[in-house]
Amino acid sequence: MKAFDLHRMALDKVPLDFLGEVALRSLYTFVLVFLFLKITGRRGVRQMSLFEVLIILTLGSAAGDVAFYDDVPMLPVLVVFITLALLYRFVMWLMSHSEKLEDLLEGKPVVIVENGELAWEKVHAENMTEFEFFMELRLSGVEQLGQIRLAIMETNGQISVYYFQDDEVKPGLCILPEGCSERFTEVPEAGDYVCVRCSKIVAMQKGEKQSCPRCANPEWSKASRAVRVT
């Protein structure tokens, strides 16, 4: 075999006119996936549950094979589509009658911020990192966690946010990118400092060094008291 053989890399052993068949097969599988999305009534991946994403990935695998391999017939992928569509309808019916099954397949909403503080134990138990949440919260106009009464990660990956009134905003962790707020291992002056990892607030004296009593992180930033600008 010759290395960097452009003809082999581009077509291998298939004839040039097979590319037209690939286009037809791709259109066929695109229509099947589109029809499935219409059946589920969803507008996008962010609105899908874990179970629905799994169904789409399974269908996509079958669709990919039939689109590119000349020895894979097109009718079996239609059977796959029909089977998955029926499975989806059946599982949806089962979940409407069983809360335990719904929790198993769809998951449960997770509280990520409660009373202005990251719900660290719940987030940690779910093996999730806080950074992706902070990005989502920034997109909702949140500057610091003390502005939030409650934030919930829904089963479809979206975050529902409930805010404090301006006069009820608490001091909290600034969630702007790292360069927008100073971090300290030794605090420069007395005041309230917040753990940059779990958002635990501790009153500290000038020159004090300590690890967070909640998550053992040694880095702190000044607690922000910014209110929302709407």
Rank of each mutant, 00 (worst) to 15 (best):
T129C: 15
F133W: 06
E114G: 07
E178I: 10
P177Q: 05
L86K: 12
D166V: 07
N156E: 02
E121F: 09
Q158A: 09
F81S: 00
N127H: 14
E114S: 13
L84M: 14
A125M: 07
V77C: 03
T155L: 03
E130R: 15
Y162M: 10
A85M: 07
E114H: 13
Y163V: 05
C174K: 12
L94E: 06
K170A: 04
F81H: 05
Y88N: 00
G116V: 02
T83W: 10
E136Y: 10
T155M: 01
N115G: 05
S160W: 11
E154V: 01
Q165S: 15
Q165T: 15
G107R: 01
L84D: 08
I112D: 05
E154C: 00
M74Y: 13
E126D: 09
Q147F: 03
N115W: 10
F164V: 01
S98K: 11
D167Y: 14
R89L: 14
E132V: 11
L118G: 04
K100N: 14
Y162S: 13
I152H: 10
L94K: 07
E154N: 05
I82S: 08
G146Y: 04
K170H: 07
Q147E: 04
Y88D: 02
M74P: 06
L137Y: 03
L94P: 04
V113R: 03
E143Y: 15
E130K: 13
C174W: 13
S160K: 10
I152P: 02
L75M: 11
Y88S: 00
F134N: 02
E102K: 15
S98W: 06
P171C: 08
L145R: 00
F133M: 05
I175E: 00
F134K: 08
P109D: 00
F90I: 08
M95E: 04
G146N: 00
N127Y: 14
G172C: 02
S96E: 10
L137W: 00
I159Y: 08
L94N: 08
M153K: 15
F90K: 11
V111F: 10
G107L: 03
Q147M: 01
N156V: 00
E106S: 12
V77F: 07
D166T: 06
L176G: 10
W93V: 08
E168I: 05
C174R: 14
T129E: 12
M135P: 04
E106N: 12
V79Q: 15
L137E: 00
Y163W: 15
H97I: 04
F131Q: 13
L101E: 05
K122G: 04
V123T: 04
V169P: 00
A151I: 03
E121R: 09
V80W: 15
S160N: 12
A85S: 06
A151Y: 05
I159M: 05
L176W: 11
L137N: 00
L105A: 03
E117H: 11
Q147S: 02
I148T: 03
T155P: 01
L150C: 06
C174P: 06
L104W: 13
Y88H: 08
L104Y: 10
N156D: 07
V169Y: 05
D103F: 13
E106T: 07
P109I: 01
P109N: 02
G146E: 00
Q165A: 13
S98T: 06
V111T: 05
